[in-house]
Amino acid sequence: MSHPRADTSSVASVFAALGDPTRLALLSRLADGPAQSVVELTRGTGLTRQGISKHLAVLEEAGVVSSARVGRESRFAIQPAGLAEASRYLERASRQWDEAAARLRALVED
């Protein structure tokens, strides 16, 4: 089954963004509740606000978080749609592997 290049390209950017432990931790923190500011997300990380901002920019570019200005600060929230596309890709890949394993098992058992 082939998939459009754009589909795999956008999914690859999500996986690349989530491949960094700091970005994965930020996404986990955002998944736990409401939108948060860079200051809130920096607390307890040992990183600077500038460092966290750079990580958030990568996550936003990948489409897994969004930002909105609230007064003088930007607040970041998780974007489920970006993660849903990656989840669908993993589900397809899992089905393909299951089918391949079943074919191999049938071949070996015959």
Score class of each variant (00 low, 15 high):
residue 19 G to I: 01
residue 43 R to W: 10
residue 110 D to R: 15
residue 52 I to Q: 04
residue 2 S to W: 13
residue 20 D to S: 04
residue 94 S to E: 14
residue 23 R to L: 04
residue 11 V to D: 05
residue 99 E to R: 09
residue 39 V to Y: 09
residue 52 I to F: 08
residue 106 A to I: 05
residue 57 A to M: 09
residue 69 R to I: 06
residue 91 E to H: 02
residue 38 V to N: 08
residue 110 D to W: 13
residue 56 L to Y: 00
residue 85 E to Y: 02
residue 89 Y to R: 14
residue 105 R to C: 09
residue 26 L to M: 09
residue 89 Y to Q: 05
residue 60 E to L: 10
residue 37 S to G: 10
residue 109 E to P: 02
residue 77 A to L: 00
residue 49 R to C: 13
residue 13 S to G: 12
residue 59 L to W: 07
residue 15 F to P: 09
residue 65 V to Q: 03
residue 47 L to I: 09
residue 108 V to F: 04
residue 94 S to F: 08
residue 3 H to A: 00
residue 109 E to Q: 10
residue 103 R to G: 14
residue 41 L to H: 08
residue 85 E to N: 10
residue 76 F to K: 07
residue 50 Q to A: 15
residue 23 R to Q: 09
residue 81 A to D: 10
residue 71 G to C: 06
residue 53 S to Q: 07
residue 53 S to R: 06
residue 53 S to H: 03
residue 101 A to H: 11
residue 33 G to E: 08
residue 55 H to V: 05
residue 11 V to G: 03
residue 73 E to Q: 15
residue 69 R to L: 07
residue 71 G to D: 02
residue 22 T to V: 15
residue 61 E to I: 07
residue 4 P to T: 09
residue 35 A to T: 02
residue 21 P to I: 06
residue 94 S to M: 13
residue 20 D to I: 04
residue 90 L to Y: 01
residue 68 A to Q: 13
residue 104 L to G: 08
residue 110 D to S: 15
residue 1 M to K: 10
residue 13 S to C: 11
residue 38 V to H: 08
residue 81 A to M: 02
